[in-house]
Amino acid sequence: SAAALVAASLLGSADHFTTSWEARCDRSCAASSRPKRGRSMRVRSGVLCPLLAVGSMAMAQAPKPKGDAIFDSIERMQARIGRPWGRFLDAGTGRHSLHWISTIETEAWTAVTAAQEMAVQSRDSVRGAMREQDRVVVGNWDDDTFLEGETFDVILADYLIGAMDGFSPYKQDLIFERLQRHLAEDGILYIVGLEPIPDSGAGAADVICEVRRMRDAMILLAGHRCYREYPIEWIYRQCRRSGFEVMESLKFPILYSRASITRQLDVGRRKLPLIRSRHGAATALALSQACDALQHRIDDATNFSKVSPSGVTADTRIRFGFDYVMVCQRSGRRGKDAEDVVKDAEDV
């Protein structure tokens, strides 16, 4: 069937090590000193939730994988849709996304960041691949005149909505209409996000939830804002309310390694000097000891201290949660009901 062919084309190279549940160190949308999340060492394998499957799309030749499961899937979606990349907008750029954009055949690209430092780093990351018509611009989507009158054939919102609470809180619902103003009539919007980590998990996965709580608590005690991810069904509702039609969505189950979980704990640890100055040495010491105890839990959950028969230290990966890609266009075709998208998310 057409749907089966679509699924097969997207699942080609399912497992890639990519980075996503990391401090946003190379994706700058935040004007604060908190880093924006980059991509951590996690395996992500694609699971298709087809919301629109057209035979001619499914028969399109899939582009050669480049090593990032999410960006590879976006290239396959665009190939099936059968439209050129044209003018491309990276609405919240960083080194990782910009490196990928520089490898696809765009007419021109515009990459947006709120931080001057990230603009410099982003330009440096694609030095030699940046053409005269390409640009990295510093701006904020809160500014109504930013990029006024400009439209793009493809817009990428790569973990942008989850980052907004760190630099533009309480306006996440407005970004959809804001981006629509810059999307060409037949343009495509790709939204990449992370399903929020719940308060608790079954078995070994619970340590991931505990690390998230500890990390966020330390961020808040340091006087910084946490990022806030949104579930796939919330994104779907906002897209529909803002005049978008969801064409399809794709989910990437996550396998957490000891290293990726520990990096999140380290995000909290790096706040200890600020916590000490704001709340005193005793509070900072207690939190440091709590982090050490949590590290032991991480090691136990991932079997890090155990040695395999081959003599190599074991490192069990924990499957928990998922990232997602949603592809949208302006309303005009019949989409799937919101309840179906919610069901798809629960089926992963």
Rank of each mutant, 00 (worst) to 15 (best):
Ser1Asp: 07
Ala3Lys: 02
Ala4Phe: 14
Val6Thr: 05
Ala7Glu: 12
Ser9Cys: 02
Leu10Phe: 15
Leu11Gln: 13
Gly12Lys: 10
Thr18Phe: 11
Thr19Val: 08
Thr19Ser: 01
Glu22Ile: 09
Ala23His: 08
Ser32Pro: 00
Arg34Ser: 12
Lys36Ala: 12
Lys36Tyr: 15
Arg39Glu: 11
Arg44Val: 05
Ser45Trp: 06
Leu48Gly: 02
Pro50Tyr: 03
Leu51Ser: 04
Gly55Glu: 14
Gly55Gln: 04
Met57Gly: 05
Met57Ile: 04
Asp68Lys: 00
Ile70Gln: 03
Ile74Ser: 03
Met77Trp: 11
Gln78Leu: 04
Ala79Asn: 02
Arg80Thr: 04
Trp85Arg: 05
Gly86Arg: 04
Ala91Lys: 00
Gly92Glu: 01
Thr93Glu: 00
Ser97Ala: 07
Ile104Gln: 03
Ile104Thr: 04
Ile104Trp: 05
Trp109Asn: 02
Val112Ala: 01
Ala114Glu: 03
Ala114Thr: 15
Ala114Ile: 11
Gln116Ala: 05
Gln116Glu: 12
Glu117Thr: 12
Met118Gln: 10
Asp124Ser: 06
Val126His: 05
Gln133Trp: 01
Gly139Pro: 01
Thr145Ser: 08
Leu147Ser: 00
Val154Tyr: 03
Ala157Val: 02
Tyr159Gln: 02
Ile161Ser: 00
Gly162Arg: 01
Ala163Glu: 13
Phe167Ser: 03
Ser168Val: 10
Pro169Ala: 07
Lys171Ile: 06
Gln172Ile: 03
Leu174Pro: 00
His182Thr: 06
Leu194Met: 12
Ile197Cys: 08
Ile197Leu: 03
Pro198Val: 14
Gly201Met: 11
Gly203Cys: 06
Met214Ile: 12
Arg215Glu: 08
Ala217Cys: 07
Ala217Phe: 12
Ile219Thr: 14
Leu221Ala: 15
Ala222Pro: 02
Gly223Arg: 03
His224Ser: 06
Arg225Lys: 11
Cys226Arg: 15
Tyr227Trp: 15
Tyr227Met: 14
Glu229Tyr: 14
Glu229Leu: 09
Pro231Val: 02
Arg241Leu: 14
Glu245Asn: 06
Glu245Gln: 14
Glu248Ile: 07
Pro253Gly: 08
Ser257Met: 01
Arg263Ala: 10
Asp266Met: 15
Val267Leu: 07
Gly268Ala: 10
Arg270Gln: 13
Pro273Cys: 09
Leu274Ser: 12
Gly280Asp: 09
Ser288Asn: 13
Gln289Val: 12
Arg297Cys: 11
Ser310Lys: 07
Ser310Asp: 13
Ser310Met: 11
Ser310Tyr: 10
Gly311Ser: 10
Gly311Phe: 09
Arg319His: 08
Arg319Ile: 02
Gly321Ala: 06
Phe322Leu: 08
Lys336Met: 15
Lys336Asp: 10
Ala338Met: 10
Asp347Lys: 09
Val348Ile: 13
